[in-house]
Simulated scan of single mutants.
Amino acid sequence: MDRKPPRGLFITGNNTGVGKTHVAGLIARSLTNAGLRVGVYKPAASGLIEIDGQWISQDVETLWEASGKIWEREAICPQTFHAPLAPHLSARAEGKELDTQLLRSGFHHWKQKQADGACDFILVEGAGGLLSPMADDLYVADLAIEFQLPLIVVAANRLGMLNETLQTELTAQFYQRGVPIAGIILNDIAADISDVSRTSNRAELARRCQAPILTHVPFGANQIPDTVDWLALASMP
């Protein structure tokens, strides 16, 4: 196994339900369109839905399609569960236990692919926010630190996002040994124009956050609206 830090980014949210998978998919598609082979990894997914008699994870489907449909779904997400709960609780609702070693070995699969020259870039998408539990004694932040990937924080552009995003930044700075934030992406998760905070959130956040605001994704966008150097962000210390 190559012991160098992997080349990639860890996508997290400032909360649950902020459009993190959608934005991760847009980033993957942007890199794929630039000619890179993008490995996508979601350590565990819950909240499966039934379509045509098959149970699927919409998150996994989004990442699979955005990365060019070249990877096995089981490699993208080795553990999926039905109930829309934290992964370890969703597993227990089925009488199972989340495999915490598989959370890690699933990522090592992609790291080895990169070391072997079969994958140019790795995108990992966590579950919820940094302090969302992955297991009884494991948080999303623990995986981000272990994987040695800078963070991209997806922030839902809505009332209350300033507090949520600033708390996420503090968590990244002070949880255990810390994990660097490469940047923040504002994401419109609805077409609702009655929330007047949406017009001022970006400027207010830029004034208060240390991490840069990379872009603002409009509701329903099918591409990242600004040019972002994802490779440079992945190389930040």
Rank of each mutant, 00 (worst) to 15 (best):
T16L: 15
L231F: 13
A141T: 12
S67R: 00
L89M: 10
V23N: 11
S197Q: 11
G39L: 08
I49E: 12
M161H: 07
N201K: 02
T62W: 15
L149M: 13
T168I: 01
E50D: 14
A211C: 01
F121A: 02
E74K: 15
G39H: 10
N222S: 07
R73T: 07
T100P: 01
A141P: 03
R202G: 00
K20F: 07
A28D: 08
A135T: 03
P212N: 07
P225E: 00
L123R: 01
I152W: 02
V18A: 14
S57R: 03
Q58E: 15
P225K: 01
E169N: 12
T215K: 07
Q101K: 06
M134H: 03
I184E: 02
D52F: 08
R104I: 08
Y41L: 05
E65S: 05
V140Q: 07
V153M: 03
M1N: 11
L31K: 05
E169R: 05
A211G: 02
W55H: 14
I11F: 04
G19D: 05
L205Y: 12
N222E: 09
P133S: 12
P43C: 05
G126V: 01
H216N: 10
P133N: 11
S57I: 06
K42V: 15
I213C: 05
E204T: 15
E204M: 11
G25K: 06
V140R: 01
E72K: 13
P133W: 06
L143P: 09
A141Q: 06
Q79C: 00
L149G: 06
S194Y: 13
G39I: 07
V38S: 10
N33L: 13
D226R: 12
K42F: 10
R177T: 14
W71M: 03
L131N: 09
A75P: 09
H88R: 04
K69H: 14
T227Q: 04
K69M: 13
I224V: 09
Q176S: 05
A45P: 12
D142Q: 09
T100Y: 03
I224K: 02
A191D: 14
E65K: 11
I56S: 00
A221G: 07
P180I: 02
K4V: 06
R104S: 12
I56Y: 08
E125A: 07
D188Y: 12
S57D: 12
H88D: 02
M236Y: 07
H22G: 01
Q223A: 03
N157P: 03
K111L: 08
Q79T: 02
A75C: 06
E125S: 09
G220C: 04
Q54L: 06
G68Q: 02
L231P: 05
P212V: 05
W230F: 04
T62P: 11
F219C: 06
H22Y: 14
L31G: 12
V228R: 02
V140M: 05
